[in-house]
């Protein structure tokens, strides 16, 4: 294949990665930004969303589009509910202590993995795509569903942006993020905000997972990579910056794919990884963020 189309393919693949990554990272960014909780279980929420999608589509059967649509509604709600429960039972009692919550979310991660392993099993299982058509470009064919994922992610991201910037909920969240005590003094129920934010963060991960699962299959250990990449995206993008999260997701999604055009894939991964590190070394606050402190 000629270089041009090759690059085009790498870019398209990078966009799909970036779209899903942006959703997942946004969930993490909300939790991290508003609650100051390093949620190690975020990848596990992603995994629960994917595994949930498998159960829903199995249960509905045909047509696959119906099952998928239901999964897209049910899974984020269910995962969000689980997250709110975990928040109330554990994180709140820890008073959101940054160090204790790391241990606690590692504990949650183990619990969710065992739940998936016991109830769902160790296999990677496919979920049928709601539709399948192939877009035939002059040089290669491409999955139409993947293009739809990019679109769907964009819609969800736009929705979140509206909520955060144009609604009272967003205002309350931002107020809590900036100054928790002050928000409380103004009559904001911080407990409810935290529960909502934690649920929303997990729900966003679940949305991303449901979108990706027809491409990638559900597996009980699938949460590791999304967790790592989301962290990187959140920090590179700068905390509390939706725009930064988006740009960083694009940067991470595309760099990996495009660099692998020039180098052997593993070497490309190494270079991309070091590039990310160097970006932070020379711009520690991230690309768009304010100065971040622990």
């Amino acid at each position: 294949m000629a270089f041009g189309p090759f690059l085009l393919l790498a870019l398209m693949e990078g966009l799909v990665t970036a779209a899903v990554l942006a959703l997942t990272a946004l969930g993490l960014s909300l939790v991290f930004g508003v609650m100051r909780v390093v949620n190690v279980a975020h990848g596990a929420f992603f995994m629960l969303g994917a595994v949930g999608a498998w159960f829903v589509t199995e249960w509905v059967g045909n047509p696959p589009a119906l099952g998928f649509a239901l999964a897209l509604v049910i899974c984020p709600l269910a995962v969000g509910a689980i997250a709110a429960l975990a928040n109330g039972l554990v994180l709140k009692r820890l008073n959101y202590d940054p160090e204790a919550t790391i241990v606690a979310t590692i504990g949650l991660l183990y619990i969710f993995q065992q739940m998936a392993l016991t109830l769902y099993g160790p296999d990677a299982r496919p979920v049928p795509a709601p539709f399948s058509f192939r877009v035939q470009l002059p040089w290669f064919g491409y999955s139409g569903y993947k293009l739809a994922v990019i679109g769907a992610a964009a819609v969800v991201l736009a929705g979140v942006w509206l909520v955060l910037n144009r609604s009272k909920i967003g205002l309350v969240m931002r107020a809590t993020q900036i100054d928790r005590e002050m928000a409380q003094a103004f009559g904001i129920n911080v407990d409810r905000v935290y529960a909502g934010v934690f649920a929303m963060g997990a729900g966003l991960a679940a949305v991303a997972a449901v979108l990706i699962v027809p491409i990638q299959q559900a597996h009980y250990l699938m949460g590791g990579d999304p967790l790592l990449l989301s962290f990187i995206v959140v920090i590179i993008g700068g905390l509390g910056s939706l725009r930064g999260t988006l740009v960083a997701a694009l940067l991470i999604g595309l760099s990996d794919g495009v660099i692998s055009v020039f180098f052997s894939p593993t070497l490309a991964k190494i270079i991309a990884t070091l590039l990310v590190a160097l970006v932070l070394v020379f711009r520690p606050q991230g690309l768009f963020g304010r100065q971040v402190t622990r």
Binding site: F140, D225, P265, A268, K269
Partner: peptide
């Protein structure tokens, strides 16, 4: 293919 890879389309060309 790197062991951490979850998507392969871009290697096919």
């Amino acid at each position: 293919i790197p062991p951490t890879e979850t998507s392969f389309t871009r290697y096919m060309p």
